[in-house]
């Protein structure tokens, strides 16, 4: 996607209190190491030349490992620039529990997957999900509640969100 979309995406993240880092496939492992708080669990990443294998992140965790994790690392299928949203796809390997249970969620995103707006996002989701029904979570910022008398970040879901943007993917 255009550099403009990425700039807008990062600006939106800023407004949401979501941190991010830019990196390349080659520098991914080092960047991720900075982005996670251990212990961390993850699900395999679909980007060429990018893997959790060389990191401290435990892939395909057991429930006990998931329960103990401080960070969950998943791929984001794409992102929506003007809202600062990442789109997650619950799947058999466990993207949904890994993104949902730990206090911190790190979403890994290819820069080419930043779309400008919600309308484009729904076009893309409709294309994907009409072919084969599936799930998607449009996640924008951390989980939050105002039900206890004032705004609190971190309700049932993660309290912190971080996005790793792969510039060359």
């Amino acid at each position: 996607m255009s550099a403009k979309a990425t700039d807008e995406f990062e600006e939106s993240l800023e407004g949401l209190g979501v941190t991010w880092s830019r990196t390349t496939a080659a520098a991914f492992e080092a960047t991720l190491a900075d982005a996670v708080t251990g212990p961390a669990v993850g699900v395999g990443l679909p980007f060429e030349g990018v893997s959790l294998a060389g990191t401290d992140v435990t892939s395909d965790p057991t429930p006990a490992e998931l329960d103990a994790a401080a960070t969950g690392v998943t791929a984001a299928e794409f992102a929506i620039a003007d809202y600062g949203s990442v789109v997650l796809r619950p799947d058999a390997p466990g993207t949904e529990p890994v993104a949902l249970y730990p206090e911190r969620h790190v979403a890994v995103l290819a820069e080419s997957d930043v779309v400008p707006d919600m309308e484009t996002a729904f076009g893309r989701l409709a294309d994907a999900m009409t072919d084969e029904a599936g799930d998607a979570i449009i996640a924008t910022g951390p989980s939050a509640t105002a039900d206890m008398g004032s705004l609190v970040k971190g309700a049932h879901g993660p309290k912190d969100v971080h996005v790793v943007v792969l510039e060359d993917r």
Binding site: T62, P63, Y101, M129, D135, I138, A139, G157
Partner: peptide, 23 residues
């Protein structure tokens, strides 16, 4: 924060926290 689009039943693993098997 979340717009969840579910086309259930879906294939996400239910997590049995007392189980041993990986996700």
């Amino acid at each position: 924060s979340y717009i969840s689009l579910f086309s259930p039943p879906g294939e996400s693993p239910t997590v049995e926290f007392d189980g041993e098997a990986p996700l």
